[in-house]
Design a protein around this nucleic acid. Structure first.
Lengths: 352, 352
DNA sequence: TTGAAAGCGCTAACAC
DNA sequence: GTGTTAGCGCTTTCAA
């Protein structure tokens, strides 16, 4: 904790009787330096424990070598994996990460965007809250590219890297229909975000295609706790009540599609309490393929999300935008397929 | 994406025919400015869309208003909660967060510490990998306080904010002993980190105290996957094999204490496959109280970790150190109690 | 190959 | 109250 003076280029220069400039060039590995000088400089730098000042450099190069990462909730396991993937890819590419958490609050998001602007980060990756895109637009206008993660924003012309939830929802719905479901429930959090909207759309779309073989369907919205309090993890408790209501309306051939595996687990309990068995009496499908899902009783059929792929791609996408070669190119939406992992909580027709 | 010139103090000054300095003072809300001038400046700043340049300011104030947060693995749900708590507290206190991920690799950690040094962050919060503390010491020497999170480091004189794992382990062990366990298994990841060491110590300590009522005990180390690959989430699959071995050695009065809830879940399956029932034939205790645990079958007895408290306290601790008022004060270890949440995977004596 | 001068955008010290 | 000067640590002309 010795608040010792930190060596600067000037210190090295002084002690070697060189100009600051030469020292800078020597350390930067530029050509216009004699091998002898370079050696002396490097040695003195080591001796003095010199550490370059990134801020000073950034100020002049106008290059922060930093990416802003804006996440609604790090406790969402999908976002946690996204953070890892993005951090890793960013690091490989030489970028540091400024992490900001919005807790799904627009007010926070505005503040955060402003903060990123002040820092002059080179680019921003963001899971947007929804409602209000002007702060993102502002970043873009000031020359900071923004790439959206997982959630789309209608009123912002920005790249998006995410999941093809429409397709995955269709896939899951078709799966339970094929297994004989005639009464379907979709349980989603009531956040007005594109992933939920897309899954609902995929659900409806598929049901329309199979109208003859469907008796009834319901989209249940679980009130989110996230708007009130801070960044809470998902919790089966959130869907338990809904699960109980559904449990009362079970007829042979019922299927429940849950927006995430935690919701599915809440439903598991509600069903168990009524003595209903999965998949014999009810089929259940989750979303996210969280590590616990394969170990539930019965193992949960769910959708695996390509978090690593998304994180990596998003960073690359952002870097392309930052390179400036793509200016004026239309926003790109890259949606990756999510894989349905079939386990014992649903059954194929053949098994019946 | 218009790479439009960003307004600076000079722009405002020029357009108002004032000195840069006056504008700076006006915007900073300092006293030595006439109300009229201030009003004009603020208006012009708005008109020009002025955004202060944090780096430039930091360069002169020698105050980055940034904290470094070093995490081994954001997909660890405990660390995810820690990240949320720290980000929130930091933000409240006016600090931004630079997030670095080490993936439990010392090489990464070194690089990360260097990076933080270059950025000149004001303080660092870190979950250390273990082995090698010189890079942290280097940060301290250059005047950047370091507060350790969750894991202690023998060879570093730094504050630590974490969990009293020794106590929680004792508590859990006593709990299963009280419920009649005579053969005990402790399952931990084989990382050489203080939390694991402390839990093992608590386990042994308690067993020694109850030597008469214990027939046998085993500490099983699950080979970690984290050293090889990137930041993977915990997975019940990791403990499943160990669980199977244990399942073969079950006698009446067996208890399994798992290092985390995911490990406990892996054991659940292994036991179920042998037709062993919990808690009648085996008691199981987890660690971490992850949201799924209460919804397992049977609900898992586990230890709740005070992540929010730790995050908040750690930030405050760091800020005190940064204030410089505590220089030369001995390193402080703040360990918070973890609460044992008793559910149906263990049984109190009375129930027998 | 090296150095001098200028400046990134801002704040701090002191004069006026 | 306001302006002038200086400087944070670095890179980038441009001369020498």
């Amino acid at each position: 904790m010795t608040p010792r003076h930190r060596a600067t280029l000037r210190d090295i220069a002084a002690s070697l009787d060189l100009s600051v400039n030469t020292v800078s060039r020597a350390l930067a590995g530029k050509d216009a330096v004699s091998p002898v000088t370079r050696e002396r400089v490097e040695q003195e730098a080591r001796r003095l424990g010199y550490v370059p000042n990134t801020m000073a450099r950034s100020l002049v190069t106008r290059n922060a070598m930093t990416l802003g990462l804006v996440i609604t909730n790090p406790s969402n396991p999908f976002y946690a994996r996204l953070i890892s993937a993005i951090e890793e890819r960013g690091r490989v590419r030489g970028y540091s990460l400024m992490l900001m958490v919005t807790e799904d609050s627009v007010a926070n998001e505005r503040r955060v965007a402003e903060e990123l602007l002040r820092w002059g980060v080179d680019g921003v990756l963001a899971v947007p809250v929804q409602h209000g895109a002007d702060h993102w637009a502002r970043l873009q206008e000031s020359g900071t590219p923004v790439v959206l993660l997982n959630r789309d924003l209608d009123d912002l012309a920005a790249d998006l890297v995410g999941v093809d939830y429409f397709a995955s929802s269709r896939r899951a719905t078709e799966h339970v229909l094929a297994a004989g479901a005639r009464r379907l429930f979709l349980i989603e959090e009531d956040l007005e975000i594109s992933p939920v909207a897309e899954r609902v759309r995929g659900f409806h779309h598929t049901l329309r295609e199979h109208a003859d073989s469907v008796d009834s369907y319901t989209v249940a919205r679980v009130p989110t706790r996230r708007r009130e309090s801070s960044s809470l993890p998902w919790d089966p408790a959130d869907s338990y009540e809904i699960g109980r209501e559904i449990a009362e309306r079970i007829v042979p051939g019922t299927a429940v599609l849950a927006g995430n595996d935690y919701f599915a687990l809440g439903v598991y309990r509600a069903l168990a309490e009524r003595g209903l068995s999965i998949p014999e009496e009810v089929a259940v499908v989750g979303n996210g393929d969280h590590p616990f899902s394969a170990y539930l009783n019965p193992p949960l059929t769910t959708v695996r999300l390509p978090a690593e792929q998304i994180g990596t791609t998003a960073v690359d996408r952002l870097l392309s935008r930052m390179s400036g070669q793509e200016t004026d190119k239309e926003p790109v939406h890259e949606l990756f397929a999510a894989e349905l992992i079939v386990r014992s909580s649903t059954r194929a027709r053949e098994d019946l």
